[in-house]
Simulated scan of single mutants.
Amino acid sequence: MAFQINDEMSPLDISNCSKESLEVKELISNLSINISNLLIENYYDFVKINLARNGNEFSVWMIYGLDELYEDDDNMEEITIGDAVFDHSEEEMNNLILYHENRFVGALAVLKYLFEIFTGSILDANFLTGTPPTQDISNFLVDVFHCEKVQQCEKVMIFQNGISSKTMVDQILDLANGLKSLDFRCPLPDDWSNPKILKLDKLVSWPSEWFTTSDLLTKLDCECAQLNETNLDCRAFKAFMLKWKMLDNTRLKMLEISFDGDWTLFNYDGLDAKKWNPEERDGHYPDLLGKPGAQWLNCEFVMDIQRDDGMLASFWRREQSFHFVVWHDRHPIATLQPDPDLLLKLEEIDFASDEDDDE
């Protein structure tokens, strides 16, 4: 049996085709189609699964509870997806609306069926909770991460509203075997700790009251990290730089930390900081925490420190944030050849004033 998929076919079109027969489903599965973007959203009365295979051109599966279905609907007709039976479905444009007695059970069944069809990799997974998270929502997210395909996803964003379950977060981190990049927007108790989160290639966390000075000095092992709303103060940043100078860490590339404080207790003692020397490095550094090919950071006006092994780093201070980059390649402009329009004019950003330092 011949079956071909063209670029115009949406994920929903492909899913509908897969239900024609077991032979067609198997043919589609054998194509190893990647999921470019998976977005799962939780709201008060429905779960929304958004799936794209080309960029951000999503197909949408919306799963409601039966209490949202009008009993006098003359067009009620059962539909089976995977191992779940839905009492009614409505297809509108590129959206499929489904009704199940338990929206989380129904959504998990849809998701598992989609993974049987789209057997390639998930390039980017995102999880959004638009309401205060309940135990049902936490259990659902953990169930999603029990799917092998989600566990192997390298890039994940978890965005939750309200107070999150630290048990849920621990379970997700333990299940996410392939995770390399995490954008983590979940408020957690100050005493929460999980070492895996500090060993990823890329970490964005907001808020980060749980991140301690000990984490910064002894546990952080990311390539790039952005930790927002920490309880640190400027003395922790100086201690970090002094320790970086003494060690041989070759993994760290970029670090940004925001805090609720000031720089009055900061001084340069022991850092041997120096101004930019154009002969030693380029004046711009790629923004590794932004999107690929995004703007570059102007480092002409920042301070440098150097280790005995020759590794060079730059740091700068803004009113309530600390920024640190390591020059593994001292001439990235020549290496990466960015568009000049991408170079950020950092000189227009307000820096912490040296006049505020306690010299």
Rank of each mutant, 00 (worst) to 15 (best):
S193W: 07
E23A: 15
N56E: 15
P11R: 02
I158N: 11
E154K: 15
G65A: 10
E359W: 05
L39G: 01
S321D: 04
N95V: 07
W316R: 07
A107V: 02
D83S: 12
D357E: 14
A2Y: 06
D304R: 01
D221I: 00
K19A: 03
T131H: 10
L39Q: 04
L12C: 14
D13L: 13
K238D: 09
I197V: 11
T230A: 13
K219S: 10
W206M: 03
T167A: 06
V169I: 03
D339V: 05
L336A: 13
V204P: 00
F115T: 01
A107W: 02
D74T: 11
N249Q: 00
P286N: 07
P338C: 07
I172Q: 05
A352C: 00
D190I: 04
Y268A: 10
F140K: 05
Q151S: 12
E101R: 10
A313K: 00
M311F: 01
L173M: 08
E300Q: 14
I97W: 04
V142S: 01
S21V: 01
E355K: 07
M62F: 04
D7A: 14
L111V: 01
E209Q: 09
M9I: 09
K245N: 09
E68C: 08
W276K: 12
N54T: 14
N50D: 12
I197S: 01
V302M: 00
F315W: 02
E256K: 03
Q160L: 11
C299Y: 08
Q306R: 05
E319C: 07
Q306W: 02
S258W: 06
L232M: 05
L336R: 15
Y99L: 04
E20H: 13
N6M: 06
F211D: 07
L344Y: 13
N194P: 09
K253E: 12
L232H: 06
E20R: 12
N30P: 01
Y99V: 06
L255N: 03
H331M: 13
E359M: 08
D124W: 14
K196R: 14
V24R: 03
I122P: 01
A176Y: 12
H331S: 07
K112C: 01
G178E: 04
N30K: 15
L98A: 06
Q295N: 09
L252T: 03
V142K: 08
V105D: 07
K345P: 09
F237Y: 05
E355V: 05
P11K: 01
Q320A: 12
D83V: 04
L312H: 05
L232T: 04
K274V: 15
K275S: 14
D272K: 10
N54P: 09
G120A: 11
M76E: 12
I257V: 12
D74L: 12
R235N: 03
S165E: 00
D190M: 11
K238A: 08
M303R: 02
D221S: 11
C17D: 10
G120S: 08
P338L: 06
N37P: 00
T212A: 01
T212K: 00
W316H: 09
A313T: 01
M168Y: 08
M9K: 14
A84E: 15
L39C: 02
M9W: 11
N54M: 02
N161I: 01
A2F: 11
M254N: 09
I172Y: 08
M246N: 13
K180Y: 02
W210Q: 00
